[in-house]
Design a binder for these strands. Structure first.
Lengths: 237, 237
DNA sequence: AGTTAAGTGGAACGACCTACTCCAGATATC
DNA sequence: GATATCTGGAGTAGGTCGTTCCACTTAACT
């Protein structure tokens, strides 16, 4: 799925290349489940290699993060582009938010890099600014067609994404689609007038769900199993 | 403002009582600005006493947190009660959210305890469940009057509060009212139909603001001044 | 098959950080 | 002025995290 060994630099021995992939896969899982603030040791045991191997392949977390999430922004850029090509501009707007949030909510690491975690910062930032024009187009098109309220600006979008994705992570395990409920509310607040009488998609949050969200919000009792299997990249439709 | 020495247990020497108050005041400031995850040492220097004094008065963080935020929930209960007594149920609903979020966004520590930080957990939890009926009444009244969409439940309220207050903390210094913008959007999505053509209150987020939110979201470059003066309790109208 | 360069694991190290205590000296109280 | 109370801040013990070192294994090439 991710970069096979870059042939331009040096051949990298067969087993080493294999290990590199194991590390990347393990890191993807661990990052997705627990965010970027995990120690190299955890990645090593998840990949079933020694720590030194991880360090040898990826001298710092920046390079590992970058190797994993280099394409993430471009994928989002593709989403925006595709959304801009949809016939109905509001449908495009909604579709983009659903797709982006699906990814962001399912992958805590992705959320953190995109929201500005201090890891591959400059590179991520650069990639992000490249995305702004397309986002502006998306917003303005929906506004021009009279769907999206005119007092919204492009800069609101990441903030909205940040807010909505902030409750996932804890709710992931117990109610992975909860974010859709609040996205629906936000969308109803974002459009110029209610068109159809929309209903909130996932069932209202149970007490358990709220509890899970809370528990995640602070490093309290989360030291049960370190091999929590989590959907790796694109689990939402 | 906060508990003067509890006369029922033991008189506590004059200087000791004075120090206790200094500690509470300092902790309030520090907690509000940097959340509950501060070391006792920081509170001690802010209070201008030794660490031992802090430990002597408050053996663990739970007792300090509880001493500071014991009334917080009751204050919120008062808000709900007052909101329920307002003539217009929708206005009451909106007023409550504004008041509650104003407090939550201005005080990071408050936000953390209420949202379930692992400190005075059981006690806070107990206090919170006592609040549920009034919240249900608030929601149901607004629904009965046809203002609030019927598919919202009481459990949605804390989630909404959590989401909206999640972006404050970083934005506090640079745009302390930004949350109002997104509350407006959420409210427009929560009501059954748009009544007046509402406009989003605070100006759209500048790049600086977004940057500040991001920076706060991860402990990166936040080691400048530890004496950041922050509004202590109830700064929003 | 043997030589060699590349790769490996995991113990070990040092630089933090954080919670908490100890006690000689200061201070209120009567 | 006697004494019980309180104080500060140095000191400790314990934990975490990033990183390296080196005796050993393994692939690659002849």
């Amino acid at each position: 799925m991710t970069t096979t060994s870059n042939a331009s630099e040096r051949p990298l021995r067969a087993d080493a290349a294999r290990n590199r992939e194991k590390i990347l896969a393990a890191a993807a899982t661990v990052f997705a489940a627990r965010g970027l603030d995990v120690v190299f040791d955890d990645i090593a045991v998840a990949a079933d290699v020694g720590v030194a191997t991880v360090y040898r392949r990826f001298p710092d977390k920046d390079s590992l993060v970058w190797a994993l999430f280099e394409n993430a922004i471009d994928e989002i850029a593709d989403l925006v582009r595709h959304a801009n090509e949809m016939a109905n501009s509001w449908d495009g707007f909604v579709w983009f938010l659903e797709e982006a949030l699906g990814r962001l909510c399912a992958n805590r690491g992705l959320r953190e890099v995109i929201m500005g975690a201090p890891y591959a910062e400059e590179r991520m930032m650069a990639a992000k600014t490249r995305l702004v024009p397309a986002m502006m187009a998306l917003v303005e098109r929906a506004q021009r067609d009279g769907f999206l309220r005119p007092d919204v600006v492009e800069a609101d979008i990441p903030v909205l994404e940040l807010m909505i994705s902030s409750l996932s992570g804890g709710a992931n395990d117990v109610a992975p689609d909860l974010w859709r409920r609040y996205l629906r509310i936000m969308l109803d607040g974002l459009m110029t007038e209610r068109r159809a009488p929309s209903t909130l998609p996932p069932s209202p949050p149970e007490a358990v769900v709220i509890e899970a969200i809370r528990a995640s919000r602070c490093g309290s009792a989360s030291r049960t199993s370190e091999s929590s299997p989590v959907a790796p990249e694109v689990p939402t439709s």
